[in-house]
Amino acid sequence: MVGNDLVFFNTRTQHKETRLTRFLAKTFTAQEREVLKASRFAFMQALIWSAKEAAFKVFMQQHPLQERFYAPKKFEVFIARVERTSATGEVHYQEQRYAFTSEVHADYLHTIACPDQSMLTEVYTQISPRTKKEARSMQHPVLGKLHFKNNTRGIPEAFTADGRAKASTSVSHDGPLQALAFLVI
């Protein structure tokens, strides 16, 4: 299964000093706040947040009866490596582990997460200008055109001309961009 998250750097709220401490305390664990202190703050904040979100989207697919909830600190991010154009690491939620990898661009970063590191290289992704929900689609080299539609839980599913694809999908949008992720299962 795959989850993704795109962060467009310009859309993040700039918190005033007095509010920043409260914002950080509600969003990041103590370990993550230490990492933030020691690095390029805005970039690392976006990276950690996107890893949490991507792992949460995998978790929601793994647990079809789970109601949506908001608990960013319960998904703790451990950064393994950060380079100029990429980053990798792991997200821990209770006993579960999710591997993630991020592509870093000038204006945005895009993270994908999977329950297992080996799955990450199997994921097809597409970044494009944001479209309406109904128009989300990607071209797959084998399956052809895939249309993305949300199910009633708000989780995207992919459809070919023959019906629903046996795949895990994820959609994220921020600012002018959208990112689609697709993994055959």
Partner: peptide, 19 residues
């Protein structure tokens, strides 16, 4: 009405709403 699914609030802004 769901904040995320119906109003399409980006989950990154939930903390802004809480604050």
């Amino acid at each position: 009405t769901s904040l995320l699914l119906d109003l399409e609030i980006n989950s990154a802004h939930l903390v802004d709403i809480i604050l």
